[in-house]
Design a protein around this nucleic acid. Structure first.
Lengths: 227, 227
DNA sequence: TGACTTCGTGTTTATTATACACTTTAATAT
DNA sequence: ATATTAAAGTGTATAATAAACACGAAGTCA
């Protein structure tokens, strides 16, 4: 059913930069395009915004449709609106960035032609998606240093070393173990569990979980979480 | 000339939150609407994005058309896309925030039915513009503490006391004079001028200007400017 | 020339960040 | 059982930064 307007209108899309962490490197989830333009090229998951859904809803819907992921940390990033970013017609894209835990990762990747890529070894991307990705990376780095969003990238139970590896991967620098642990624990957001994480012939590591209640409380005060 | 599409499309607009500083309070520039909906209500300057212009261009164009302002600091803020934010039809708005110097202020206000309001004493606004404004305020506060954008709100020549008053107005707290000056000067971004600012029966104040060259250099390094 | 008002300045103390190395603990191999 | 292995876990001294705080200087105006 066609729709007619007095003036030409841009098409509106959402694109999601989905970050994951495999324990060593920061990863991005990409899907292989099936149609022109940029057929067979890797691209960010995304698609057209429907006229009766919010932008956030559109991002969540497209993410689930194309990757199987749901209930993830999702936040609006930036809106990309240069005139020629899509060769067909004017398309404005509201970009989102998402953080997913390793659990969600394996469940999702077999749902579609989606694949994780290390951010340090990316293929050529469709449209201006490399710019969107770069913007998302900058935002992630910035955010990580003042908000405890790292937990969104780790399993529900994690060790302090895993948390440190994540920070090191995202920030691109090595951190001092003792200072990191001091700082991370000082916010009182990590709850030690009774369990330990045994892996290999060495001392097992204490497992922690994140305290979402204290997190919400701190968030209202406009807190910081600087590492 | 009508334009037809296979699926319904949202209309795309830009809205600008323009901040100014009168020496005492933080101000926002609003325009009075001439048409329905929300006729006679105050609203953020803004309008429809043309299909052949970028979002940034649209924001600058609308800002100049409605307020006479040009060559201002302008930065994309957030995109507002709830379904019913405009009672007529689906309208997605890319919000921008702008900072203008007092010089531009007086030149602009008589250009249209635009008026400055103190952020602590706002009228009822059209659409969801009060939400956009709140988002902009939060962003301004956050940004001001780590980037030297305060200069965008001051005249080319300013005193340290003026700069401090601005920070106090935006952050909503009083700052220590000596510590503030120490910090502000430590970044080496303020150039003392030969002139002094004489006003009233007391010691005249040293005038400074902002050093844009050093600013650009620092920006590339990903610097901070914390007060 | 004295009153008034804002400008401009330095030091001490508290807090936070940084640098740095050895003991503990469990699994595994012998 | 004992030795080996490898990561876990921990404390202190020093440097850097932030915070608290008060008074003389420089002009105008009566």
């Amino acid at each position: 059913m066609p729709h007619t307007y007095e003036y030409p209108r841009a098409a509106l899309t959402v694109d999601c930069v989905v970050f994951g962490f495999d324990g060593g490197e920061l990863q991005v989830l990409l899907i292989r395009r099936g149609q022109e333009p940029f057929r067979y090229r890797w691209a960010l998951p995304g698609g057209f915004v429907r006229v009766e859904e919010t932008l956030d809803d559109a991002a969540r819907r497209e993410l689930e449709e194309e990757t199987g992921l749901r209930d993830v940390f999702l936040e609006q990033l930036y809106t990309f609106g240069t005139v020629k970013r899509d060769p067909r017609e004017r398309v404005v894209s509201v970009a989102y960035f998402a953080l997913v835990k390793p659990g969600a990762v394996t469940a999702a990747t077999d749902a579609a032609e989606a694949k994780w890529f290390s951010v340090s070894d990316l293929p050529s991307l469709a449209f201006d998606h490399i710019d969107i990705l770069a913007t998302a990376l900058t935002r992630l780095r910035g955010k990580l240093t003042y908000q405890p969003i790292g937990f969104e990238l780790l399993p529900p139970k994690f060790t302090l070393t895993q948390l440190q590896r994540l920070y090191e991967a995202v920030l691109g620098e090595l951190l001092d173990k003792r200072n990191f642990r001091k700082k991370a624990l000082s916010y009182d957001l990590l709850i030690p569990l009774k369990e330990k994480h045994q892996e290999g012939p060495h001392r097992p590591a204490q497992l922690f979980r994140f305290d979402p209640v204290k997190y919400e409380r701190l968030k209202k005060k406009g807190f910081l979480f600087e590492i």
